[in-house]
Design a protein around this nucleic acid. Structure first.
Lengths: 159, 159
DNA sequence: AGCATCTCGATACATTATATCGGTATCACC
DNA sequence: GGTGATACCGATATAATGTATCGAGATGCT
């Protein structure tokens, strides 16, 4: 999947007070949803936010323990499922990876631009949700969720 | 993923002369592309066409041998990769599955309506390719391929 | 306190996918 | 028709990704 040999590192994630602010926001949102921001859930989100790009579940598993010890897979998968359910993170199907949500509260639906070179992704507004519904109802389908993942190269990697 | 308990069987695939016609077409297309329709490739496509809905790689592996014996995984994955490369089949990322292409020659890009109840899928025209490109270039991305998978229920399962 | 529910950690296992290697088929060219 | 280059195949082994289950602890409700 790494299709070019550019010499740059790709995207940066959050750290310091940006990170703690984001985590605090998430906790808030969580409480308002009537859910609990437990330790493993917070840790999973923290790692995604720090990374600033999609992370594989097993990469998170490796670095999950604050003491450097890996987590058990179900711990991480449960946390990621939870974050996805709340919209705090998204699963990128075409990468088998997870990324922290970059949108605010109001965006359940998401679409992604994905750089196959450096691994960066950008979360964008879904492109034409009404067209999806229209095409679907023409075929009799009721649509509940749409995956949109556009692969290519980011500005830095394309140049 | 099976979210309803309807008592119907979902979609039918091809058989008899519809099947052989489709296979013949595919072979044609293959030759015109300067590629070879070898036995495992033909067999993989035949199974996808017969199924008429997305199939998991390991389900194909189970039934791959004409004599009832399973194939080795690389045999099937290689065949599927080839079919996908030629546009004779598509991978559905959100299902880890593969489905025969329902469009004619001219449709590299595809989008899917997917019934989470009966497993049917319908291949449709991509919804708004120009919007994708527009959104992407606003962010500096050059897009090469887009995955669009809309999940919900088909007419039969919704009713 | 007593009870229901949610969550967690751990073990084991299931599913999905790929790396590699040696042999065979096909094709272009002489 | 031989010769080399390339594409393809079968087989073995292993890697990567994801889940079922179970017992214990935490949380919230009455």
């Amino acid at each position: 999947m790494a299709e070019c040999e550019h010499d740059h590192d790709g995207p940066e994630g959050l750290s310091g007070h940006h990170l703690s602010h984001a985590l605090h926001d998430a906790e808030d949102r969580c409480v308002r949803a009537g859910e609990r921001m437990t330790q493993p859930r917070r840790r999973a989100l923290e790692l995604l936010l720090e990374a600033g790009k999609p992370m594989k579940a097993y990469d998170l598993i490796e670095i999950f323990g604050e003491d450097g010890r890996p987590a058990k897979p179900p711990t991480v998968y449960r946390a990621l499922d939870f974050l996805a359910k709340l919209g705090l993170a998204h699963r990128i199907e075409s990468l088998n990876a997870y990324v922290a949500c970059e949108m605010g509260e109001r965006n359940h639906a998401a679409a992604f631009l994905i750089c196959d070179c450096c691994g960066a992704t950008e979360e964008v507004e879904p492109f034409a949700p009404e067209k999806v519904q229209a095409a679907a109802s023409k075929s009799g389908y009721i649509i509940e969720a749409v995956t949109v993942e556009a692969h290519g190269r980011c500005g830095a990697c394309a140049s």
